[in-house]
């Protein structure tokens, strides 16, 4: 039982990170109907900016805080540029065009990030404790080994999600965001500035990307493969539904746990490396039974 729970917990912790990336997708999709393929590139770009800035500012009084602040500014500028140069010229285009545009953004960010900041592997240390913790020694025979890094990550993610939930439900901007998500034109007609809302959402998505980038980066080093995390987060979206924040979180946990468990218990039977596609097949099988995802809404076709 002990090893199983260990694997499960490791999976859930990895799932938290998928959830974070998926959350970025969901925020943008809800508010603008854009399927933002650049979310992964944003994770990489944010993490690269952060880690390199920390290096440059290491002799200042607070390298972490300073580079965090600068990276946040960078992500805000990025959101402004995306709104001005991509979303505004493409307003009212079919969703597929917008999706392709975000692929363009992804290519651009990958190239830009690496040409400005370099393309090596950078280790990132923001002071997250790394020693594994041994828990529940009294319950299970050998106790359960949990990485304290993962625990911190889960905690941060939890706080972030809670903060976003409050932001969406309680503030005026949050209400405007939900209105825009419901109906662009109707929201515009009651005086909600669409462009401003887009900047906000892309900024928030950028910040979520930054958090995800820092956590993954301190775990695996900041490198190009961070950009590919986005692909890992996509099955989460199918599972949780494109428009559900709660779905992104639960979906991420399910995918993370499923992936690790399958790799450990199923992998050896069919040749290993199955975590590469397992999440997709899991999500796909799920779709056949619930096409709208876990928390998506059923749309009744009106004719």
């Amino acid at each position: 039982m002990g090893p199983f729970i260990e694997v499960l917990i490791a999976g859930l912790m990895a799932g938290v990170l998928y959830s974070l990336v998926a959350l970025g997708f969901v925020l943008i999709f809800k508010a603008s109907g854009v399927f933002n393929f650049a979310q992964g590139a944003m994770v990489l770009f944010a993490a690269l900016s952060f880690v390199r800035l920390m290096e440059f500012l290491q002799n200042t009084f607070a390298p972490i805080l300073l580079s965090l602040a600068i990276t946040i500014v960078i992500m805000i500028v990025l959101a402004l540029l995306v709104e001005r140069l991509v979303l505004r010229p493409l307003v009212n285009q079919p969703p597929i065009s917008l999706f392709m545009a975000t692929l363009g953004i992804a290519y651009f960010l990958d190239g830009l990030g690496q040409s400005i900041w370099g393309s090596d592997i950078y280790t990132l240390d923001v002071g997250i404790p790394k020693e594994p913790l041994l828990l529940f020694e009294s319950v299970f025979e050998d106790g359960i080994l949990v990485s304290s890094e993962d625990l911190v990550a889960a905690l941060v993610a939890g706080v972030l999600v809670a903060g976003l939930a409050v932001f969406f439900q309680r503030t005026r901007i949050g209400r405007a965001l939900r209105a825009v998500a419901d109906d662009h034109q109707a929201a515009q007609s009651v005086g909600i500035p669409l462009n401003y809302i887009w900047v906000i959402v892309w900024t928030v998505a950028g910040l979520v990307a930054l958090v995800a980038g820092i956590i993954w980066g301190s775990k695996l080093g900041v490198q190009f493969s961070l950009s590919l995390i986005a692909l890992k987060a996509l099955p989460v979206l199918i599972l949780g539904g494109f428009e559900s924040v709660l779905g992104a979180i639960i979906g991420g946990l399910i995918i993370g746990a499923g992936e690790k468990l399958s790799e450990t218990y199923l992998g050896p039977l069919i040749g290993g490396g199955i975590e590469y596609w397992f999440a997709y097949v899991l999500a796909l099988a799920f779709l056949l039974f619930r096409p709208q995802g876990l928390f998506g809404e059923v749309h009744i076709d009106r004719v």
């Binding site: 392709m100 992804a106 290519y107 990958d110 190239g111």
Partner: peptide, 23 residues
């Protein structure tokens, strides 16, 4: 390496440009 990064950037920018000019 730089060429390939810049190629990425130009490629991405061109895609966006094309979509904006003639979707």
């Amino acid at each position: 390496a730089m060429i390939s990064h810049i190629e990425f950037m130009i490629f991405g920018a061109l895609i966006v440009f094309f979509l904006a000019v003639e979707p």
